[in-house]
Amino acid sequence: MGNKSSLFLRNEEIAQIQEETGFTPNQIERLYSRFTSLDRNDCGTLSREDLMRIPELAINPLCERIVHSFFAESNDDRVNFRQFMNVLAHFRPLRDNKQSKLNSREEKLKFAFKMYDLDDDGVISRDELLSILHMMVGANISQDQLVSIAERTILEADLCCQGKISFEDFCKALDRTDVDQKMSIRFLN
């Protein structure tokens, strides 16, 4: 019986977000009600903890990276509804006739690339890949094996022989992947 009457979006805000993200007004309202229910302290923005409180997200091996992607744009470690929606917009299906600049194949790939690029310097180094692998498998594969996996993966993908993976290398490596299918959430209008 949460009384959310004071927390409704204004029509202009909905229109603006629709313009930016391509979500329909109905979807925006539904996502807003999700946003406010995640916002435990009713302050209009979410903290990392607010997101981490979702159990299914918290058990995801990539949890920290996913949560971090929401805070990349913010400078005070809080994310407001517009920033929240901008991140989610990356996951709108490409086929959707209402195109927006956020859900193109390139944007989806960029999002995926940032998952690996821990220090945000535009390249994935061996150590970064190793940390991600470590997050994914925990203690179930030995460190030596992980090192060799990381080195081999970089060797295969690194086309400019810098020992690092640039965004171009990354796109090449995922050339034959159906990125749209892998990185799109089926929204029900």
Binding site: I54, E56, M115, I149
Partner: peptide, 25 residues
């Protein structure tokens, strides 16, 4: 043991999905 970048994408997607809608909260 082979790894390619594609393998993490499922986890990224399901994580974002959990933010939009989950069974518990």
């Amino acid at each position: 043991i082979n790894f390619d970048f594609e393998k993490c994408l499922d986890y990224v997607k399901s994580g974002v999905e959990a933010i939009i809608e989950d069974d518990v909260t």
